[in-house]
Write a protein that binds this DNA or RNA. Structure first.
Lengths: 209, 209
DNA sequence: CTAACAGCGTTACTCGGTTCACAGCTGCCC
DNA sequence: GGGCAGCTGTGAACCGAGTAACGCTGTTAG
């Protein structure tokens, strides 16, 4: 009755942790480290050490008992598992403050994801933002089809989110990161991850006392 | 080893769902509905119907067999449970695009949360944004203490997040919503919720295939 | 040399959350 | 009026994620 996740047999939590591990390992590697212990990686991610070992076990990766895990090979394994198939084009809809925040973040900090931006407002489009050309939204479907874009990011106001995401899906997108505080109703084969700032704040407010 | 949650005996998932229920119920009520069935509420939140009933059971609320749950009383119960103690002041640090997005969202869509904004850059402060006065960051500790602010939102770049959140905590904040892609190390009594856009995107990219 | 130690890999278990299944109730239709 | 249909409430079963516990291996100190 809640089949929002066609998990492909993989736990989303595991993917989240692997993504965290990867980031920490990249930073550690850039800082000159060559190997890490499970408890170090665990502490850096607020996770238990056995959790790290178990996760790496499911990846089929083994470390050495003497110096822990070598960073570079481990990174390769994680990349392979997460499917690091080169750059990933992303359709970003909505260039308000939130959209621009995501845009800047992707361009400067996450070169793997290559965004293409769209907005309804003609005052925001037909120009370059953070090195990305912004299209009017009626060009969206064509652009998605031409570039075989599979991932969409929805940064539009709540009332437009459903319609925009439907357009994304009909154009070929199969995974959506949604920032609008609404639940999207889309075909089951589409993976939807909603980041609901409102709910998150309520949660913090609740546990803050 | 990962005691980041001092759950207070309550599951964070439950709080998230209650927050969703509340929003849906408010919208339904504004649309003129007077009562709703568990399966309707469930569908609107992408949850199973028994989950809804069970959640409401833990709240001690009962619906009627004939017409489901009356919206107004149910809203009251949820409000009471989530601790709707009037307005909640929020310290928002970092007025870049992300910060302004959160700011606008709070001011226009979520009047319960009353933000006060801070930034390091003097070009952004000493003025009004979205009806909120923006202070330079060296006024932050005083303002938090004076207004007894307990909730903080961190929208600063990753390298500054740790330092900023430490300042928030020493000034009296006990709950933080963190948007920076880093893991914060703070005293155990502080509740931290991290929204990691980078990880979320990786997850979508992974399950999109 | 060997004994203590530290870290990894793995299995068994625990625990919390979700779902199943069913009982009870109420209105409706024939 | 009696059965039927549909909803709620809830004890019990189920499931999966995380954890504890333990054996193994290599390292170090005495």
């Amino acid at each position: 009755m809640a089949p929002a996740t066609k998990n492909r047999g993989v736990s989303p939590r595991l993917v989240e942790r692997l993504s965290l591990y990867r980031r920490v390992l990249q930073q550690a590697g850039a800082a000159g480290a060559r190997a890490t212990y499970s408890h170090e990686l665990a502490a850096a991610c607020r996770v238990s050490a056995v959790q790290v070992r178990r996760d790496l076990m499911t990846l089929g990766h083994s470390g050495s008992t003497t110096s822990g895990y070598e960073i570079q090979p481990l990174l390769s394994v994680i990349d392979a598992y997460l499917g690091d198939t080169g750059s990933v084009p992303v359709a970003l809809v909505g260039i308000g403050h939130l959209g621009r925040a995501v845009l800047a973040f992707l361009c400067w900090r996450h070169p793997r994801f290559v965004p293409v931006a769209f907005d309804r407002d003609p005052r925001l489009t037909e120009r370059v933002l953070d090195g990305v050309w912004c299209f009017p939204i009626d060009r969206m479907a064509d652009a998605i089809r031409e570039q075989h874009i599979r991932v969409g990011v929805v940064c539009v106001p709540a009332p437009e989110a459903q319609r925009v995401s439907e357009q994304l899906v009909t154009a070929g997108v199969t995974g959506i990161l949604n920032f609008a505080p609404v639940t999207l109703f889309l075909p089951n084969h589409v993976f939807v991850e909603t980041i609901d700032i409102s709910v998150a704040l309520e949660k913090v407010a609740f546990f803050t006392r």
